[in-house]
Design a protein around this nucleic acid. Structure first.
Lengths: 340, 340
DNA sequence: CTGAAAGCGCTTACAG
DNA sequence: CTGAAAGCGCTTACAG
């Protein structure tokens, strides 16, 4: 069944050596145009397809990039991975997209899988604190880029691309302050996520300048989701919530807030303003209309691929690059001035 | 830089032949437990990792399944791919997830990529009419399963797993009829999609039994999305819409209807009831609360993987299997009885 | 229980 | 311009 046709078969049919077939396929210049065409025609006719495994084994290059995301079901990562795949393809690389499932064990296995398969480099998208350390430990020597978390701050020797979360937090604070909010909740802070730490820090610093100390509600889970956002908000609302605005750590969390608010008869934005972070496509839906901080996924994706391929090509690694992208505010209708 | 440690290095360090190292790694029984442990310890210490390319080349088996989805950014496919990956992993297979981007050219390239990389089998998730033919043409001889479209009907010689779309269409019709609707629009029919044809047929057959001929609005694009749903609905609403209910061909399309309705000041479900198809997670959001037909992604995913691995193991292919999963109605609040 | 040898499908110096 | 040979990293009969 799995009997593929090989270069040997083609050589036999064409009456040439395997070397010649190989050269015809790789567009080697040292070959008469005539024989090349004749051989290529035979390949086409016989449905020949090069065995990438064998070729990569020889060339020590696969032209494959491994991409690990925490969860494809989160639209933020789905959109990000689409951007990465598209840009990588335009540069001649294929992408193997893997689902870490927010699980360190699975992620570690995926590293093993990708390395075993000799990928040329790895992009790890993560908001986990230890993502940089993971790369160092699991893929030393392999070109790698950490996407979404600034490795610079954590001191790991890895390359990274991410949004400026500090600036993002500040943007959020400015927006809510300008609208006149004073009693504000930051919902869903993940203490073990550097990304979230920075987001929070930018937010609180700006708030404190205005003499305000926001209430911070931690998210003890390793990820953010609608369900978690909903659960945390239920607790908040159950205890009676005086705040006029909630800044949710991600859009998914914000969608959860929306759900809990609905259950408690709280209107958004009439009773409470809601601001998210990420700008996933569902935030733009009517009835949702979530104001949010845009992570600019397209820019992130391209920067990560560009950086990784540059490292792969340079074949050296004695300095590390960190790129930060500036976030922007997307103002929709989930935020307004507080009631007097 | 990309100097990996090989079996030869291990052999040298351990003072044995490469054969022995290989046997230690593959848990071959013909080996003293003592040397095995000694060798494995060295491998661990040196951070040795088997080169999957070389191993697969010899074994003629990769334990990798290729999965092509039209778009990971569609939550339906994102959830489906998660189910497939999880189930495949539990059976010892890794999954290479690829993004067809709703583009025949890209999909064809992906087939080439996967076949070149010697995957053991392919799952193609698609709602395109010609998906079965594509498999036959691009991957004859390779174990493959078409997911989401019934190959049986199209007469292609491929295996398939899908929901019973005819039954799904009937379920939708029954629900709207029971609520008392008589003036109904089916929005987003894709004439070149067998899946959608069946959905429509089940729907109209049931309607016609009740003496009703629904208005059908075609979707000329090759895919369904929020934007397309919105654009089609705008046209519908702009011309004045008498219908009391809309059955959208997918949940994404339904979200687009919601958006257009909002623009035209039409309330759902007060003015018009809205029913979707798929049951993506965003349909469950408050304020959205979309009634829909559940495709039961988990069952689909598992059935596809089970079928594919069975074919891979059997190593023969002279009969083709078609599995259909029964859809269910998920009734939320976007559908109600029409105003008198 | 262990090793030498052949071979998986390919590429690339090295000759001619 | 073309071919014979070596080799990528591994596995597996075949001897011993």
């Amino acid at each position: 069944m799995r009997q593929h046709i090989t270069i040997k078969d083609i050589a036999r049919i064409a009456g040439v050596s395997t070397s010649t077939v190989s050269r015809a396929l790789s567009n080697s210049p040292e070959l008469s145009e005539q024989t090349r065409q004749r051989i290529l025609e035979i390949c086409r006719r016989e449905g020949y397809r090069v065995n990438a495994l064998a070729r990569s084994l020889i060339c020590n290059k696969t032209n494959v990039i491994g991409l690990i995301v925490p969860e494809v079901t989160n639209p933020f990562y789905a959109e990000l991975s689409l951007g990465i795949e598209t840009h990588a393809r335009s540069l001649g690389y294929n992408v193997i997209l893997c689902n870490g499932q927010n699980d360190a064990k699975v992620t570690e296995e995926l590293f093993g899988f990708l390395i075993s398969h000799q990928v040329d480099g790895i992009i790890l998208a993560s908001s986990q604190q230890d993502a940089g350390t993971m790369i160092q430990k699991l893929a030393p020597r392999l070109p790698a880029v950490l996407l979404g978390t600034p490795a610079l701050v954590s001191g790991d020797e890895v390359n990274s691309v991410c949004i400026d979360n500090l600036a993002g937090g500040r943007l959020a604070a400015e927006h809510l302050l300008e609208l006149g909010h004073r009693d504000i909740v930051y919902l869903g802070n993940r203490p073990n996520s550097l990304t979230h730490q920075l987001r929070l820090r930018g937010f609180t610093e700006m708030m404190e300048k205005a003499g305000i100390i926001p209430q911070v509600i931690d998210n003890p889970h390793g990820c953010s989701s609608i369900d978690i956002g909903c659960a945390l908000s239920r607790k908040l609302f159950a205890n009676g919530c005086s705040a006029t605005a909630i800044f949710a750590s991600t859009d998914s969390m914000a969608l959860g807030v929306l759900q809990a608010a609905d259950e408690y008869g709280i209107s958004i934005p009439e009773d409470i303003s809601l601001l998210g972070f990420d700008n996933i496509i569902y935030s733009a839906l009517p009835k949702i209309e979530l104001s949010t901080i845009d992570q600019r996924k397209q820019l992130l994706a391209e920067a990560a691929v560009d950086l990784l391929t540059r490292i792969i090509d340079s074949n050296e690694q004695d300095e590390f690059t960190h790129r930060m992208i500036r976030p922007t505010l997307v103002s929709r209708s989930s935020c307004r001035a507080p009631k007097k």
